[in-house]
């Protein structure tokens, strides 16, 4: 289910702020430089989970970016939203991600977890806005 559907339109990659801290888990150190069409975006330490995303999936806007602060679920977290409402993610020991709507399977990236959450929400449910 996680790879189903297509990205509609282009991925709107916003200018990324420099994320200073490295995450507790996953590959550390690799500097990845993201290149935007008009301007070169600033590099950031390679956060686990892939690049930030902002796309429409099955009619829902899903956005995600790595965070550095110690959120509810520890460092190396992500801020992910579905239609602007926060979608809590948790990390598994194998590096994959669980979302709060789906605790009994995990996904390789935050993007896949966000798409999986949209799949489970169906067409007429929304997130309540709570993180856990």
């Amino acid at each position: 289910m996680e790879a189903k559907g297509t990205r509609s339109g282009t991925v709107r990659r916003r200018h990324l702020i420099v994320v200073a801290a490295t995450a507790a888990l996953g590959a550390a150190g690799a500097f990845r430089v993201l290149r935007g069409p008009a301007q070169e975006e600033r590099g950031r330490p390679g956060a686990p989970g892939g690049p930030a995303f902002d796309e429409t999936y099955r009619g829902r806007r899903i956005q995600g970016e790595p965070t550095t602060g110690g959120g509810v679920h520890g460092p190396g977290g992500w801020r992910v939203t579905v239609d602007g409402k926060p979608l809590g993610l948790m990390r598994r020991a194998d590096g994959s991600y669980l979302s709060m709507v789906d605790h009994y399977r995990s996904y390789s990236t935050p993007l896949a977890a966000a798409r999986g959450a949209v799949d489970e929400l169906g067409t007429r449910q929304s997130l309540a806005g709570r993180l856990h």
């Binding site: 507790a24 888990l25 679920h73 520890g74 948790m90 990390r91 598994r92 020991a93 194998d94 590096g95 669980l98 605790h103 856990h132």
Partner: peptide, 18 residues
Amino acid sequence: HIDHYVSDGENRRRVAHM
């Protein structure tokens, strides 16, 4: 049950799952 779901990638004590 909600309060005790802690995943094993977090550096916290887990009692209920994983």
